[in-house]
Simulated assay, not measured.
Amino acid sequence: MNAPPQREFPWWLLIAAALAAWMMIQVVRDDLYFQVLNTLSRGIAITLFVTFVGFALASALGLLLALAGLSRWMILRQCARFYIEIVRGIPILVLLLYVAFVLAPGLVVAWNWVFEPLGFNPARTRDFPLIWRAILALVIGYSAFIAEVFRAGLLSVDVGQIEAANALGLNRWQRFRHIVFPQAIRMILPPLGNDFIAMIKDSSLVSVLGVMDITQLGKVTAAGNFRYFETYNVVALLYLIMTVSLSLLLRKIEARMRQTPR
């Protein structure tokens, strides 16, 4: 049997830190870099808001889809599978444009059809903010992928433990809460963390709707100063800081969970 591989020194992290330090020195010493960073920093809050809200809602919807896909009722299983397969086949950018310019106006029309006869003032399509259209698109798109993550994690739990919990008289909710989910989360967390990091990067797509996130502010800034090299260096640096730091944090959480006894 081969010996377990020794833990290697993370040279890649050292190189990345050196590049980040070099960029920060440029920001401090160069007025142009500093101005670009000051402008783009206003988009960090939008990027994080879109990511955190979108991922929380996508995770909730994904869990419901996973439970529906494992339901004893065939109609729920088929509806969940239909949603997952169709949505996963649509690129996020196309889904973003579809939700923003097709689904959102349709929802406004449906809202007026239901509530206008009840005395409510009619809604207008422009009353549906672009940032929430972008969040809705990310929720729809990522919930299909997250549903598969939850489904695989739930199926990884030993059936014998579920049968033992059933023999003890636990109902379905109690079995899920005390037996299934605490064990499944160990399998779910790593791919779920990867999806969260992927959503941070895909949140840059909301710039096509004019949402003032980091990418959109970078496009506007570069169009104004024509210094594309400096501007997009800062854009890339901000995304790398967020994704790499979160990736390292998730690795620590995973290592701690592996050390925690079942």
Rank of each mutant, 00 (worst) to 15 (best):
V149Q: 10
A123G: 09
F82M: 08
G62D: 09
S41I: 11
W113D: 13
V234W: 05
I46V: 15
A152R: 05
G54W: 06
V99Y: 00
M257L: 05
L217T: 00
M199I: 08
I140W: 09
L130V: 01
M74K: 02
L93G: 00
A45I: 13
P5N: 05
F128N: 03
R262A: 04
L154P: 06
R175F: 13
I90S: 04
I86A: 00
T39S: 13
I25L: 14
V157P: 06
P91G: 00
A110Y: 10
Y142K: 11
R175V: 14
P191A: 00
L97Q: 01
I44M: 15
L63R: 03
I241H: 10
Y228L: 10
S207Q: 10
L246E: 09
Y228E: 04
W22I: 14
S203K: 13
I84P: 02
Q26K: 10
A255R: 06
W113E: 09
C79Q: 10
F101H: 12
T47R: 08
G193A: 00
W11M: 12
L248A: 13
S143Q: 03
F176Y: 15
A236E: 14
V27H: 05
I241N: 07
V220S: 03
L95I: 02
N121E: 15
G89E: 10
V157S: 04
N112D: 06
A68N: 01
W22V: 15
L70I: 00
N233Q: 07
A21H: 14
W11Q: 11
N171G: 10
I253F: 09
